[in-house]
Design a protein around this nucleic acid. Structure first.
Length: 395
DNA sequence: TCTGGGGTCCTAGGACCC
DNA sequence: TCTGGGGTCCTAGGACCC
């Protein structure tokens, strides 16, 4: 097998926590948690390495995390800040290659010329440290699978290569959970057949494997031998946009649900419009106290982007669900996204509506979503204001 | 006194079309 | 009087990822 590129996985260590510690040196060396309010069902987004020594991990309920380490400092996530820093990091990465797949806010794959991976990794890490003072781990190999695993072995704040010749020594002893697509459910399923390590998987009969994990068997088999032909996805096309909220306490009142739906719809409409997108499909999501989830979906021939239509659709779906209180979470998802194009004639009615939207969107941009995200009544008030503003502007 | 939010992809059945 | 097979879209649910 010959390879044209070296593949790097760059992953910022404990990203949110590292940004906080960098921005406020008093936090350096201390256990800090970025997460939601422990009294309101919050969970840990990220925590510093100091906090990890107490067994704290991402996705752990904040309440539990604070029990594990009562002196840990809990900070709320400052997403706009992290997004900005993330862009600064990506700018640095782009100096080394245009072939970048941005996986998430703190992770990216890079393809560089075969043989230059390790040296490039050193230079990237040096630049990120010098210019942004942030810890970064980089895995270097010939494909996504191996560079990802190399990166996890490099952490924290280091570089590691994992070349194909080392698969037997370095990959095979690891738990199958390191392989992409093997989460808790699949891991447990495979464990039942005695498959615990990657080596177990490598020597398990293929047809029997297919009976356990279906069509995923072939990929898994490849991964277990260190092969991975997944390409880097250089340009990402968003498939869905969603908003959901877990209530601090379960909700019994359908009126409140309706108000929340109104806000979620407004936020989604805003996000769609600000990206120049419209959605053909709307889904309603409900979660109940036992954590079971129910979704109800509908599609339109015409893509939509306005708050009212999203809200009406969501309420209709809700009513067709025949679900009973209490509810733990409610959310709306939009998919079937299309770039917005003004092709058809607009009715007088929709033209009138479209005068309001941009003004509302400007208000939201200026004052943030809290200006609007406070429930239906406030929104309606704002809407009246917006109408007045817009009529003044027209004069 | 546990268990977020924002995503992606896959499966499977039914409708519909050729 | 019989009833294939492929393709696509829609919907519901589930696993997984960061």
């Amino acid at each position: 097998m010959s390879y044209s590129y070296d593949i790097l996985l760059c992953d910022l260590d404990a990203f949110f926590a590292s940004v906080e510690q960098r921005d406020n040196p008093k936090l350096k060396g201390k256990p800090i948690i970025i997460g939601g309010d422990p009294d309101y069902r919050g969970v840990v987004s990220t925590c510093s390495y100091e906090a990890r020594q107490y067994g704290i991990r991402a996705a752990l309920p904040t309440k539990k995390a604070l029990q594990l380490c009562p002196k840990a400092l809990l900070l709320p996530a400052r997403m706009p800040r992290y997004k900005k820093v993330s862009l600064q990091v990506m700018d640095i990465l782009e100096r080394f290659t245009p072939d970048i797949e941005r996986v998430s806010i703190d992770e990216a794959y890079l393809a560089v010329k075969r043989g230059t991976g390790l040296e490039t990794a050193r230079r990237i890490r040096f630049a990120v440290k010098k210019e942004l003072n942030l810890p970064l781990s980089i895995g270097v190999s010939v494909n996504k699978l191996l560079s990802k695993i190399a990166c996890s072995l490099a952490k924290p704040d280091n570089i590691k290569a994992l070349w194909p010749h080392a698969v037997e020594k370095s990959l095979w002893p690891l738990s199958i959970g390191v392989l992409p697509g093997v989460g808790p459910v699949t891991e447990k399923k495979l464990n039942k057949f005695g498959i615990k390590t990657v080596a177990d998987l490598a020597f398990f009969p293929g047809d029997a494997l297919k009976n356990i994990v279906g069509n995923y068997a072939a990929d898994l088999k490849e991964y277990s031998w260190g092969y991975d032909n997944r390409k880097l996805e250089l340009k990402h096309k968003q498939k869905s946009i969603s908003e959901e909220i877990t209530f601090p306490r379960d909700i019994y009142d359908q009126e409140i649900i309706m108000d929340i739906l109104f806000d979620l719809a407004a936020e989604l409409g805003y996000r769609l419009r600000s990206k120049g997108l419209r959605a053909r499909t709307i889904a309603l999501k409900l979660k109940f106290p036992d954590l079971t989830i129910k979704t109800k979906t509908t599609s339109f021939p015409e893509a939509i982007d306005d708050d009212e239509k999203i809200y009406d659709t969501a309420t209709t779906l809700f009513n067709h669900c025949c679900s009973k209180p209490p509810w733990r979470l409610i959310g709306i998802s939009t998919s079937g996204l299309q770039k917005w194009e003004q092709l058809a004639l607009f009715s007088a009615e929709s033209q009138k509506k479209d005068k309001i939207k941009p003004v509302l969107d400007l208000l939201r941009q200026k004052y943030g979503k809290n200006a609007i995200f406070k429930g239906r009544r406030l929104l309606l008030l704002l809407k009246k204001d917006a109408l007045m503003i817009s009529s003044k502007q027209n004069k």
